[in-house]
């Protein structure tokens, strides 16, 4: 009985420690974002790795998503004689919801796990300590750069994903009929407002921030050993993905107030 109580007490203490550690990490991250010692060269490199290197995955997924969504939606709209609404309906779904969330989930999987594993591995092999003793601030160099890159690249990746998805949708529309690209985009964009695009970009900025913060935290404080590296990569993906859905729910509530 005593050991169960001890285990529970230790678990509770450990969780409280992690919460405190995460709070300090957040405070340190936000104060360092505006620090004069920002590593702009490394931030640009991370933008390239996180943004450019993710383009193929986001593009392929976006194209298939637009195509499939169009093919799946067509029968339902046909039943109601509203087939002409197909481009507008698909574009609204993509721009408001599916594009940002799918892009963020792809990045949580690809980028988040990569950051968690990379920093975790650097921690385990004392590379972070080596940076510190060489007179470099590893927090600015490794953490802040990746958070900034995630936050700035995700909105751009989402715009790219939206465009490719629309092209996929255009192909989906043309499988069963013939619509010019001009007519398709005129119809698709007719229902998209500035608020749709703006709120989509703002929320993807926060999705990116969440992925960056969670992944760098998990990696930077990975417990020693290869198991810790795996756990950091895994937790980066799981927690980031969960947070994306929670943030999306909040974003929808906020944007509905303005629409």
């Amino acid at each position: 009985m005593k050991s169960i109580v001890d285990t529970f007490f230790n678990f509770l203490l450990n969780q409280l420690y992690r919460i405190g550690q995460f709070g300090l990490f957040l405070q340190h991250s936000f104060s360092s974002l505006f620090s004069t010692q920002s590593e702009w060269k490394e931030t640009a490199k991370q933008c390239y790795l996180i943004g450019y290197k993710t383009l193929p995955l986001v593009g392929i997924t976006g194209f298939i998503m637009g195509l499939v969504l169009t093919i799946q939606t067509r029968p339902t709209l046909s039943d109601f004689g509203a087939e002409s609404w197909l481009p507008a309906m698909v574009s609204v779904s993509i721009v408001r919801e599916i594009g940002p969330v799918i892009t963020a989930l792809i990045c949580a999987g690809k980028v988040g796990s990569g950051i968690g594993a990379e920093l975790g591995s650097m921690n385990v092999t004392e590379q972070i300590d080596a940076m510190e003793v060489s007179g470099t601030n590893p927090f600015n160099y490794l953490v802040v750069t990746r958070i900034l890159a995630c936050a700035f690249m995700l909105p751009l990746l989402t715009i790219y994903n939206d465009i490719i998805s629309m092209l996929g949708s255009f192909m989906g529309v043309n499988i069963m009929g013939e619509v010019s690209i001009r007519l398709f985009f005129a119809s698709a964009l007719s229902e998209i407002s500035f608020l749709d695009i703006f709120s989509s970009l703002i929320k993807t900025f926060f999705f990116g921030l969440a992925i960056g913060i969670i992944s760098t935290y998990q990696g930077y404080y990975a417990q020693k050993g290869t198991v810790g590296v795996g756990a950091a990569a895994n937790a980066s993906v799981v927690i980031s993905s969960l947070l994306i859905f929670i943030l999306d729910m909040v974003a929808v509530q906020i944007s509905s107030l303005f629409s």
């Binding site: 591995s121 092999t125 004392e126 590379q127 300590d129 080596a130 060489s134 470099t136 601030n137």
Partner: peptide
């Protein structure tokens, strides 16, 4: 922190694992 980083440029540390940046 800043003064410590400046001092560290005059100190060297060879880690047991060498701690090379493997990327």
């Amino acid at each position: 922190k800043k003064a410590l980083n400046t001092l560290r440029t005059k100190l060297g540390f060879l880690f047991q694992s060498a701690a090379l940046y493997d990327s």
